[in-house]
Structure formats: structure tokens, C-alpha cells
């Protein structure tokens, strides 16, 4: 009677031990590792930044620094960090996605956005139109997007950070055009999304739909992604700057709880501060992000021209409010698809 029971229990134990032994960590003092969790279109930019910063860090401290990058939709990345992806720093598409690291998991202090200059956003971007070569549908501004027969490509604002900027930029234009008459603005948004044949889950997915599958006439895109499309598909597309757009501030932050646990707080902070140096600002410009440093921004003004930009804080009351009014269940985005 005893033997089978013992075997029964020990088999349970054995299974658990096997599973537990699959983990394990290794490390040494001479080398140090950093994980930067970022969003989709920053991949190429951070490859450059990491190379330069790692060399600098080695010169200063003698430590061999390896920076791992993780990219994906901004919201998804934030969720991974909440669920335990041990990022030392996050560099996401919008402040709302870093706010939740505080509200959901207390991974960093509530005032994280004041830790670094310029709302912790070392570079900015905006939303532009990408159209087919020669602009056959004559799309010049937000008002043209609702013309019949114009296919508009944007990702789903519920799943994509970039798409939220698209949505709010369109809203800002309509708000001005219709003098804050909300029913008219909603009607415009409704007609705009009637022209959207595909809602991809992320910005890169929409890029593929527009550029590779040939769907749609206008692609509402991150400015830097628009230039990437031009590079990848030369002579196929044109970039159109609308009369008004939105100042997108992709912020960066040290995930303090993780960095302190890994003993990487110092290097994480230095890494993010490095983004504000002239060297990194020029890299940002080269990758079609708008440098924060006005002197360096001037060098790129041919490529990245000035245009009137609304801001999330002044025009939409900050991310928490914008999220609640527009993108949460029952918000304006849900309403334009119902009925």
C-alpha cells in the first residue's frame, strides 16, 4: 500500500523539479546587459544608438555592454513588461503605455515623465500621409480622406499606438474645421473609417498592407515610417504634409524596479541621457525622427519641415483623458463603428 503512494508523490515532485530546473541565470561583473523594450519603427534607430553608446560606455568604465532590443506594437510591449519581461528601459510610442507600467505594476514612479528633459521624449515625430506616386486621388489634407473612392490605411487605434496618434490628428483637424461641433466631428470620423478597408493591429502591418499588397490610396503613417517606405519602395510613393498634424512624443523611461534589481540603474540612466546628446540627436534625425535640440533640428528642416502641430496635453487633456474619451470601450472609436 505504501509503495504506490510514495511513487505517486515522488512522480509529482519529479515533474516539478524537471520544470523548475529549466530556468537559471548567469552573469559576470566585467560585462553588463541591458534590455531596451521599444515599439515597431525604432528598430533601425536603436541599432545605431546602441552601437555608439556601448562603445562610449566601454571607454568610460571598461565594461562590456550588450544592449538587447525588443520591438513590437507599443501596447503589446507595455503588456509584456507588466507581465514580467524584465526591461531595464522602455522607449515606447506614447506616454500612456508607460503610465500603465506604474498604474498596473508599480514598476516606476508616477512622476517618471519629469525625470528627463522635454517630457522624457528625446525625439518627436508626427503623422503624415503617404500616397501613391503622382497622388492620383489628389489627397492634400484631412478633408480629402472622406472623398468617395479614397481608400485609407491605418492600424486599429485599439491595438496600435501609432494609430491613436492618427486618430487624434484627424480629430484635431475636424475639431478645427467644424468649430468644435462634436456631432459633425463624429460624422467626419465615421466617414473617414468607412474608407478604411483594413485595420491592421500595428503600424508595420499597415505598412505592408499599403506598400506590398497595394491596398488603399492614402496611408496615415509615422513620419519616420513614411521615409522608410520611400527607401524600401523607391519611386512608388510620395509623402504629403497635411495642413495640421499632431506632435507625437514617444517617451523613454528607466524601469526602476527592474534596473535596481539587475544593478543596471546607472547604465540605464546614462543610456537614456545619451539620447539627448548631439551625437544621438543627429542619429535620430538621420532616422527621420525630429531631434529635440533646436540647433540640430535645423539641420534636418529640409526633410522634416515645420507644420502646425496640436499636442496631446494641450488639446486632448493628456493620455489618460484621451484614452478614456476615444479608445476605451464605449469611446468615440466604438461609437463610429456602431449603428
Amino acid at each position: 500500500m505504501k509503495a504506490p503512494k510514495l511513487l505517486f508523490l515522488s512522480s509529482i515532485l519529479a515533474t516539478l523539479v524537471i520544470i523548475a530546473s529549466c530556468g537559471g541565470k548567469s552573469g559576470s561583473e566585467k560585462s553588463i546587459e541591458l534590455l531596451n523594450v521599444s515599439y515597431d519603427p525604432t528598430r533601425e534607430f536603436y541599432v545605431d544608438v546602441n552601437r555608439v553608446f556601448a562603445a562610449d560606455w566601454k571607454k568610460q568604465t571598461g565594461q562590456e555592454l550588450t544592449i538587447q532590443q525588443s520591438h513590437g506594437g507599443s501596447g503589446k510591449q507595455a503588456r509584456s513588461v507588466i507581465d514580467g519581461l524584465e526591461a531595464d528601459v522602455v522607449t515606447l510610442a506614447l506616454a500612456g503605455d508607460i503610465d500603465v507600467l506604474e498604474s498596473e505594476a508599480k514598476l516606476l514612479p508616477k512622476d517618471w515623465q519629469t525625470k528627463l528633459p522635454d517630457n522624457s521624449s528625446p525625439y518627436t515625430s508626427t503623422i503624415v500621409f503617404v500616397v501613391r506616386k503622382g497622388n492620383p486621388k489628389g489627397v492634400k489634407d484631412w478633408g480629402d480622406l472622406v472623398n468617395p473612392g479614397v481608400g485609407v490605411i491605418t492600424p486599429n487605434p485599439k491595438t496600435s499606438g501609432g494609430a491613436r496618434w492618427n486618430y487624434l490628428a484627424a480629430w484635431a483637424w475636424a475639431d478645427k474645421e467644424f468649430a468644435k461641433d462634436e456631432s459633425k466631428v463624429l460624422d467626419y470620423m465615421k466617414r473617414l473609417f468607412k474608407n478604411v478597408p483594413v485595420l491592421d493591429t500595428g503600424a508595420r502591418g499597415s505598412t505592408t498592407t499599403f506598400a506590398q499588397r497595394g491596398i488603399g490610396d492614402v496611408f496615415l503613417s509615422w513620419e519616420n515610417e513614411a521615409y522608410l517606405i520611400e527607401k524600401e519602395f523607391p519611386g512608388k510613393t510620395e509623402i504629403i504634409y497635411p495642413s495640421i498634424s499632431i506632435l507625437a512624443e514617444p517617451p523613454v523611461a528607466v524601469v526602476e524596479k527592474n534596473a535596481k534589481k539587475h544593478g543596471t540603474y546607472e547604465v540605464s540612466e546614462a543610456y537614456l541621457k545619451f539620447l539627448y546628446t548631439d551625437e544621438a540627436q543627429i542619429l535620430a534625425g538621420n532616422h527621420f525622427y525630429r531631434p529635440r535640440n533646436p540647433e540640430i533640428a535645423k539641420q534636418f528642416v529640409d526633410k522634416l519641415p515645420a507644420l502646425p502641430l496640436v499636442t496631446i496635453d494641450a488639446d486632448f487633456g493628456g493620455w489618460a483623458t484621451a484614452q478614456k474619451n476615444h479608445f476605451a470601450d464605449g469611446g468615440t472609436f466604438d461609437r463610429i463603428y456602431q449603428r
Binding site: 504506490p4 511513487l7 505517486f8 512522480s11 509529482i12
Partner: peptide
Amino acid sequence: GFGMSLGFSITWLSL
């Protein structure tokens, strides 16, 4: 081997 195999199965299924 009933006890042992059942032990493995139940633990595994649970996990």
C-alpha cells in the same frame, strides 16, 4: 505502474 503514471499525468495536466 498505475500510481506513478497517474501521478505524472495529473501533475502534468494540472500544470
